[in-house]
């Protein structure tokens, strides 16, 4: 298991994520959300690049899309967070805005060590 270095900043204890899909914390003055998607953790900036809303505090959901036959399906449940101000959808894994990847929430690598969550920048 890798050790935290000087680039790693303590975010929260791992057990704070039990029973929830995310936690919000502040690391060096930056509001960051740590999400659990399946078994992996992702850290995303909580400041919406659109107009400054609390992007990571919104609904975690999937998306309406089409399958190979063009039929409407609901897919990727649990992988998308929407800013509660304007509903802009972001991919929790990459921070990318689904409608236009030119807009992206900053994301950070996550390290779990000894029951503690660290984010790296």
């Amino acid at each position: 298991m890798p050790e935290p270095t000087g680039d790693h900043h303590y975010a929260a204890d791992l057990d704070e994520l039990e029973g929830t899909d995310r936690l919000l914390t502040e690391v060096n003055g930056l509001e960051v959300a740590v999400f659990r998607v399946e078994d992996d953790l992702y850290a995303v900036s909580n400041y919406c690049v659109h107009q400054g809303g609390p992007a990571c505090e919104g609904r975690v959901s999937g998306i309406l899309t089409v399958d190979d036959e063009g039929e409407l399906i609901y897919d990727r449940n649990g992988e998308i967070v929407s800013c509660p101000w304007h509903g802009w959808e972001f991919d929790i894994r990459t921070g990318e805005h689904l409608a236009n990847p030119r807009y992206r929430l900053p994301t950070f690598d996550v390290l779990v060590h000894d029951g503690e969550i660290y984010i790296e920048w």
Partner: peptide, 10 residues
């Protein structure tokens, strides 16, 4: 409408 998905909380 976009409001109907519940994604927009305001």
């Amino acid at each position: 409408s976009p409001m109907d998905t519940g994604r927009i909380e305001i």
